[in-house]
């Protein structure tokens, strides 16, 4: 499983927000995209996910696991996305949130089997037994982890991370970062992370969106 972006560009009216993006991310790898705020990082992710607002247009190709997806609507692309906010569904409990992503993937699985998967996922995040908890009663760090679990349980072919750490305080941030990176490795999916914070980059190189090329961490 890998993702390849070729000459991907987002423009407002006719003006491109950034130079064309060409990049390839392999399974289990993390591509970090950096840029100052307002340079179009979130728009890049939206273009990949297929959720661009209507004033913006995308150009270029997105190949996911050997398949072109740029013409597909967002819900058929098989991409997961993680925002700064957890965006957990407030009307469902923890298990409900996690099952929501699980449902489409494995419709044939029995309820007990699906609950078992949820329990395992929660365990892996150190949240065993949290199934019946109300979202509103969770701490910020717990919400962030459950939100990520939810994205991962849907078995996406690509995970997009839109500054997922910026809302968390210093202490939590490190732990959650580590959690995210391990999960990506373990599940062997490609991931693209956008950020303006160099600490978010575990790799020696990152992609400079304004420059339009890979750069090393100085």
């Amino acid at each position: 499983m890998s993702v390849r972006l070729e000459s991907l560009q987002v423009s407002l009216d006719t003006e491109a927000l950034f130079p064309p993006v060409n990049a390839q991310v392999e399974a289990g790898e993390l591509l970090v995209v950096m840029g100052a705020s307002g340079c179009g990082k979130s728009s890049l992710l939206a273009a990949i996910a297929g959720s661009l607002t209507r004033e913006l247009t995308a150009k270029g190709t997105i190949t996911l696991a050997g398949e072109r997806v740029e013409h597909l609507p967002m819900h058929l692309r098989g991409i997961g996305i993680q925002f700064q906010e957890d965006l957990l569904f407030p009307h469902l409990d923890v298990a409900g949130n996690l099952l929501f992503g699980l449902a489409a993937e494995k419709p044939t699985k029995s309820k007990a089997q699906r609950l078992e998967l949820v329990a395992q996922a929660l365990q892996s995040a150190g949240l065993a037994g949290y199934e019946k908890r109300d979202i509103a009663t969770l701490s910020g760090g717990q919400k962030a982890r459950i939100s990520l679990l939810r994205s991962l349980l849907a078995k996406p072919k690509l995970l997009l991370l839109d500054e997922p750490f910026s809302r968390l305080d210093e202490e939590l941030r490190g732990a959650f970062r580590a959690f995210v990176f391990t999960q990506i490795k373990q599940l062997q999916i490609p991931a693209i992370l956008v950020s303006h914070d160099r600490q978010d980059c575990p790799n020696p190189h990152f992609y400079g969106l304004e420059q339009g090329r890979m750069q090393g961490i100085a």
């Binding site: 996910a49 959720s51 609507p73 967002m74 819900h75 058929l76 692309r77 098989g78 991409i79 997961g80 996305i81 925002f83 965006l87 569904f89 407030p90 009307h91 929501f100 992503g101 449902a103 489409a104 993937e105 939810r150 994205s151 849907a154 996406p156």
Partner: peptide, 29 residues
């Protein structure tokens, strides 16, 4: 309404319709 919930729901459940009924409508109930 923050429509990212709807988008997320659609990506997670791979169905806009399902996301609309199970996420947006209950949240706006």
């Amino acid at each position: 309404f923050d429509d990212r919930y709807l988008q997320l729901g659609a990506m997670l459940s791979q169905s806009l319709w399902r996301s609309f009924w199970k996420v947006k409508i209950p949240m706006l109930f």
